[in-house]
Design a protein around this nucleic acid. Structure first.
Lengths: 219, 219
DNA sequence: AGTAGTCTACCGACCGCCCGGTAGGTTGGC
DNA sequence: GCCAACCTACCGGGCGGTCGGTAGACTACT
């Protein structure tokens, strides 16, 4: 989970090396605890204790609880940008681009879901300005997926699917992974990523109708 | 949102009619506020004010904050049982059953997502015994969907999909609706339900491979 | 080598506030 | 007179956050 180091570095500015390490550890621990207990149910003392500091000592490194949350969510959003969106932007073919998006996003979650899960679950813990910032970036992401679906529709590969609904539904499928996936479970991360990616593609691609010959109706 | 009345009635036992109404209003308001702000960020005073009582007055009707949460989640789970699982159980054909599950669950969410959303987002606010109860019922639901997918696989309509992963993915797609659907949005509830249901069926049904002729790889 | 000053990395004690919850009334309809 | 349906006033406690202090490493000067 050393990835949060980057966010810590960014927040630390021109600090000494020891301070960078400590700060990274704090961000990492906070993300883990926020993820497990939720933001509001986590006290500053919880985080301090987890990194072997007192509350006052912790405040040497952080500005406040809200800033901690915003930093973690900003990091998660950066991760999404760098690991999912940017690589996908370089893929021209819409179907391949969609596969890239789903597979990379799903992989991020199976690797470490803390920050990414906080990103979607703790929005109301942010200050209004910070929330607007994060929500805007999230909307850009959904729009990017919707645009990809629209491109697939223009190719005739997708028929009769609203791109926005499609994008939200795929995102829901992906995000939910963090609720049920266990690294020590029956399937390993790569298998889960592959399964979900296949489902996502299948969900949006047009393969004729799915009317059910043996089905008297949905009543 | 009068549906919570039932849960209130159940909790009230043999109370007078006026008390039933008041209690139902409390449960309804609490569900709405928990949904909007989250359980931990909602104070008993918030709920009391919303129903025009003081905190002490509210305690005439409720036993405590945790019981309130558990009652709301129990109601949501009852709703799922009665409106989704039981009707679906009566559908023999697996594909029709799956359509029933998705459409009915999605419709519940577009109609009133408060209690159902609390049900999945506030589990850690419960006491351990209560949490075990709710989690058990949720697992039963996912198993029910997975069994339906397994039946479809036995029919040859689904190939190469892990039923458990499939069930979780569909649930994620459905639950996420509560995060983006707005009753005053571009699409009405029925359209959203229909779109999501079609995507869900398409996601699991086997329609040949989706390999991409114009795709040099997923780089 | 000694020592005075400085800075980092903390800690113990404390602040005001709000929380969930309660004790003990008060009021109004039957 | 009684009881349902509230209220005012309060409790202990934990919260986020701050304050003044300090051990110890490091530097600067004599």
């Amino acid at each position: 989970m050393t990835a949060l180091d980057n966010a810590a570095l960014r927040a630390a500015g021109t600090a000494a090396n020891g301070e960078q390490d400590r700060r990274a550890e704090i961000y990492r621990s906070a993300a883990r605890i926020f993820h497990r207990k939720g933001y509001h149910a986590t006290s500053i003392n919880d985080i301090a204790a987890a990194v072997g500091l007192t509350k006052a000592g912790l405040y040497y490194y952080i500005k406040g609880k809200q800033d901690l949350l915003f930093a973690i969510m900003g990091f998660a959003m950066d991760q999404l940008d760098e690991q999912v969106i940017e690589p996908a932007r370089r893929v021209q073919d819409p179907q391949a681009r969609l596969e890239t998006i789903v597979a990379r996003h799903a992989r991020l979650i199976t690797q470490d879901s803390s920050a990414l899960t906080i990103l979607v679950n703790e929005l109301e813990g942010l200050l209004p300005d910070d929330r607007a910032d994060i929500i805007g970036r999230q909307r850009d992401y959904v729009d990017f997926i919707a645009d990809t679906l629209a491109a697939l529709r223009d190719e005739g590969k997708v028929v009769g699917l609203d791109p926005t609904v499609g994008a939200f539904s795929l995102v829901g499928m992906i995000l939910w992974i963090s609720r049920w996936y266990r690294a020590d479970g029956r399937l390993d991360g790569d298998e889960v990523v592959a399964e979900v990616t296949r489902m996502a593609i299948s969900a949006v691609l047009n393969r004729g109708d799915h009317s059910n010959p043996g089905n008297p109706g949905t009543g």
